[in-house]
Design a binder for these strands. Structure first.
Lengths: 231, 231
DNA sequence: GCAAAAGTGTTGAACTTACACCCATGT
DNA sequence: ACATGGGTGTAAGTTCAACACTTTTGC
């Protein structure tokens, strides 16, 4: 391209662009959030979402995936954009526009990541976070609630085999209220995406609860078409 | 801050950040989209969303508001973020991360903006747009449909006084199907946010249709609380 | 045998959908 | 008087919300 043609682009001011990941998990009982101790100034050692700067040749979504891989060791997990945060004074360390992503990671992988730099927090114990990260988190929670009613979204948070009481506990936790177990079963089973297995999980009761799996084909189809799952 | 402390920020690569605005309007009959002829290379003279680069000291939302003010002459209008678009190859002119916003502007102001550089398009005649703008637009339409069911969102598109047939035409257009007029009236009136005026608009029929206004207090309250408005 | 969690149905209320005719007025 | 768009009600079907007891089994 000629210099004249490039003029439009060169007059733009360049800014730092970051991605920040809100990582939700589920311990079988409650939804949890993975937070990290910040390693750099300003706000060193405060709790923070995990993030990084976007590289010049990198798609922003790829940057978010890289952050997850590097810090949690997971690939191919549910990752969806929440939105851009760009108040000019949001980061005293410099002008940074951040794109927030939220990720849902399944139960069994939880134990991998707890170190002195990273910890799972239950909603009640979320501390003050750096910058506008509490705001991002609140937006993510709102988003999750809305999504959970239109897509089988919470399902990304469970291991391959799970029980209905577990699934209900997940929804209870997302909506912060106890759903009616009979109505919940009726609704979830009527979606017709669950396969009942011949196995029971006896870890939480003497009677044991039947394990279920998603019927992947129906599940994907439904996800594409969207659905309404009112609770 | 010391040099050491700044190291984290200086190692980040700076990128151009832009905002692009999807501007919806309503002509009393159909929802419309305002597009602009691009003035610069690459893709000069192709149709495009309107946008600009974010300045170093400018909030991203303020940048979107500025774009609207400069190009459409409107301030204080409904403006909501759609999300960030950041594929590294999305713009052959340079590496630009764009934050898309959508704006809803009311009927009466429509006529202000038509020039040879800007035109209102009906959904059926949307041309090929530059870069990923068609993708942004599709996302905006999806978003609008979802929002229209949870918030009185379409209302931003109407002038202060409007008739129920107009409001129905707006919803028909957003959802691309003819709603049942009796059911529509029942639902919209049961929301209890409309004030019937003693005036009629006779511009579209001999009988004339009663004009309505929003009860601003109730309308705001409902917006805060959210609501479900299934169609 | 008892404690603890899993599992199971019904009923009334609320809401959604489908549907067709009269009204008011300008020409 | 007629053409045009505005306005109105009801009944059937569906969906939602509220509700309590029985089952299984490890201890």
């Amino acid at each position: 391209m000629t210099e004249a043609k490039k003029a439009f682009y060169t007059k733009g001011e360049k800014l730092l662009v970051a991605v920040d990941c809100i990582i939700f998990g589920f311990d079988g009982n409650e939804i949890k959030l993975l937070l990290f101790k910040r390693k750099v100034e300003p706000f060193k050692d405060m709790w923070s979402l995990i993030g990084d700067f976007v590289k010049r040749e990198e798609d922003i979504e790829a940057a978010a995936a890289r952050v997850l891989k590097d810090n949690v060791g997971l690939e191919n997990i549910f990752l969806e954009q929440l939105g851009g945060y760009g108040r000019s004074d949001r980061d005293p360390g410099g002008r940074v526009v951040s794109i927030a992503y939220f990720a849902l990671i399944p139960l069994k992988t939880h134990d991998i990541v707890e170190t002195h730099h990273a910890r799972w927090f239950s909603p009640a114990e979320i501390p003050e976070l750096i910058l506008d990260h509490n705001e991002m988190l609140q937006d993510a929670v709102d988003n999750l609630r809305i999504k959970a009613q239109r897509q089988p979204i919470g399902f990304e948070l469970l291991p391959k085999k799970f029980t209905l009481p577990q699934l209900k506990a997940l929804y209870d936790s997302i909506f912060e209220k106890k759903l009616d177990s009979r109505n919940f079963r009726k609704k979830i089973l009527s979606l017709n995406v669950l396969k009942k297995l011949d196995e029971k999980d006896k870890s939480t009761s003497k009677k044991g609860a039947f394990l279920y799996q998603f019927d992947t084909r129906k599940y994907k189809k439904m996800k594409e078409e969207g659905f309404s799952f009112k609770l």
